[in-house]
């Protein structure tokens, strides 16, 4: 069985980020790039499924990203993925959800898989719309927000979180699965894993390999970022140190009354 995990390379979630006024894209210089946190959970799920399936099951990580970030994928290889594929092309810059899912779908078809594991949400674009769009482009059953997953009799059995509780869902393979953070903490790379990752291959695809029918990148996108601005500044408020609990409560109560919140 071949499992492919999609991994987006994103600016460090803990860094202050901003948009470049000239290019209208995220400023990446001076900010470390990391594996999108949700995608580490997707990778963890894939590695667990591989361990349970045994045999000749493999895990491939896939990223669509500038070539300069290629080496960041070593972390995924160190965690236990067998190989990595990067889709990289200047023509992809500025792709929105539609263009991203369209290009990714063609690359993933070329790579081939039995199960596609996708993260739930990215830390930068945060639309959460790529998984659904990707499933449609690939004609796959789409099972999202898994907290548990198993493969038995060629079918995927999933327990998935919903906004009101959870569901159990069954679907035939090939399928697309996304993982919730409750799937389980991503593993750390072992020293052996880190050493082994150096010898694993990261291959590269470009748009020339995909023969797309429609344009991608900024011009092929269905959305256009026209403006952006920092939010209105929230001034530093009052800091009060009351004598006791009752005085503290009174301070808050009066403040809420003044704001018409009680």
């Amino acid at each position: 069985m071949k499992i492919v995990v999609t991994v987006k390379l994103v600016p460090d979630p803990n860094a202050e980020k901003h948009i470049d006024p000239a290019t209208k894209r995220l400023v990446r210089t001076g900010v470390e790039t990391v594996l999108n946190p949700y995608d580490e959970y997707a990778l963890e799920a894939a590695l667990q499924l591989k361990e349970r399936a045994g045999g000749d099951t493999t895990v491939t990580v896939f990223a669509m990203s500038p070539e300069s970030l290629k080496e960041i994928l070593r972390k995924a290889l160190a965690m236990g993925a067998d190989e990595a594929v990067l889709l990289s092309d200047a023509g992809l810059e500025g792709s929105d959800v539609w263009a991203t899912s369209y290009a990714m779908a063609h690359a993933l078809k070329k790579i081939g898989f039995d199960l596609l594991v996708v993260g739930g949400l990215t830390d930068d674009g945060s639309t959460g719309a790529v998984p659904g769009a990707l499933a449609e482009q690939l004609g796959l059953p789409c099972i999202t927000n898994a907290r548990k997953a198993d493969i038995a009799d060629g079918k995927l059995h999933v327990e998935r979180e919903t906004d009101t509780g959870y569901q159990t869902v069954t679907a035939p393979l090939p399928a697309l699965l996304t993982t919730a953070l409750t799937f389980g903490e991503p593993r750390y790379a072992s020293l052996k894993g880190i050493m082994g990752a150096k010898k694993k291959t990261i291959s590269t695809l470009t748009l020339a390999d995909l023969a797309l029918d429609a344009p991608v990148g900024e011009s092929g996108s269905k959305t256009e970022l026209v403006a952006f601005a920092p939010p209105p500044v929230r001034g530093k408020g009052r800091i009060e140190t009351p004598e006791d609990g009752a005085a503290g409560a009174k301070l808050i109560f009066d403040f809420l009354k003044e704001k018409k919140l009680v």
Binding site: L121, A133, D163
Partner: peptide, 12 residues
């Protein structure tokens, strides 16, 4: 959660 799924599917 499910709204984002519906949105993605309709995008395509």
């Amino acid at each position: 959660l499910s709204g984002r799924d519906v949105a993605g599917r309709l995008v395509a």
